[in-house]
């Protein structure tokens, strides 16, 4: 009895596999062309040598060594080397922005998912959240300047009501303004996935929790947060990868005075130091991948989705 069945199975299996390969082919090709190939090229160029005007194919670790040159000791000014201090500063922003967008995004998503009853209202409010995205990224950032500047609206108000005598300087071109702009720009990336996973939570679970005598906070912490984990992790991945690679926001809001890894790469490419930039990009990629690996260890996204 089982022999014929196995035979049929064996006969259909290769066909089935081929069909599956065909189905996966288009996307695999796109990935290969626009992701794998460029990535391999970057890895390759990072090993090349260069001068003012040409790239010289080679296999040398010169670029990596020059990135970490001087990192074994502090500089004369008592700082870490450029690479270390830049990564530390970028990671700091990453952490701050992640923490703030997480709290904000979770709160907004919670409100949208559980407090707004009608689905029409939900959609309307959701669209409202995307309003900041109707203008360009750069305009959104630049519009902070007249607000936070030395003679800006905030300072004028503070001085007008007599809270301060001199303009508050740290409002603009500071860590504060950079974080503010990031939060303004990227909270949306936290809201969407968290809202999405909250909408999948079976409402009867909440009722069950209440029936079992759980307080509001207990329900939140023991039911909603664990069930929203996927959304939280996906949102975190969005925010962290964007902030790690950003150089425009940090440039504009930091008055070009705050270093970021992206900025260093950009400066190097504009001075035709492509191999150095490539080496930096490889290191940045490695760091980001490690963070994402760590995050996915917390939640098995594929299983949860």
């Amino acid at each position: 009895m089982s022999a014929p069945a196995t035979a049929t199975h064996a006969a259909t299996r290769p066909l089935h596999t081929i069909a599956a390969w065909w189905q996966a082919a288009p996307f695999a090709l796109v990935f290969l062309l626009f992701f794998i190939v460029p990535l391999v090229l970057i890895g390759m160029v990072s090993l090349w040598d260069f001068n003012e005007y040409e790239l010289i194919p080679a296999v040398s670790l010169r670029n990596y060594l020059s990135i970490f040159e001087g990192c074994s000791h502090l500089t004369d000014n008592g700082d870490f080397c450029v690479t270390l201090s830049t990564y530390l500063s970028t990671l700091k922003f990453c952490f701050l922005v992640w923490a703030i967008t997480l709290v904000l995004g979770f709160a907004v998503a919670y409100f949208l998912a559980f407090h707004v009853r009608s689905s029409g209202m939900q959609t309307a409010l959701f669209v409202l959240c995307t309003v900041p995205f109707w203008t360009s990224n750069v305009i959104r950032m630049i519009s902070w300047v007249p607000l936070l500047g030395r003679n800006g609206l905030v300072n004028q108000t503070l001085m007008g009501i007599g809270l301060v005598n001199e303009p508050v300087e740290w409002l603009l071109f500071s860590d504060f303004s950079v974080v503010l702009a990031f939060v303004h720009l990227y909270t949306m990336f936290m809201i969407v996935p968290i809202f999405n996973s909250m909408m999948r939570i079976d409402r009867s679970l909440l009722e069950a929790a209440t029936d079992a005598g759980a307080s509001g906070w207990q329900t939140l912490w023991n039911v909603i947060v664990p069930l929203s984990k996927t959304g939280i992790i996906i949102g975190s991945i969005f925010v962290i990868t964007i902030v790690m690679g950003d150089f425009v926001t940090i440039g504009v809001m930091g008055g070009q005075q705050i270093a970021s890894v992206g900025k260093i790469i950009q400066v190097q490419t504009s001075y035709l130091q492509f191999p150095l930039a490539a080496a930096n990009a490889v290191i940045l990629l490695a760091v980001v991948l490690m963070i994402i690996y760590g995050l996915t260890r917390l939640v098995d996204i594929r299983k949860e989705l």
Partner: peptide, 19 residues
């Protein structure tokens, strides 16, 4: 100008920006 030590200069300039 473009200096002979341009690469070194750009690296040091990045250090200034990062400081």
């Amino acid at each position: 100008a473009v200096m002979d030590e341009n690469e070194y200069m750009v690296r040091k300039w990045n250090e200034f920006v990062a400081a």
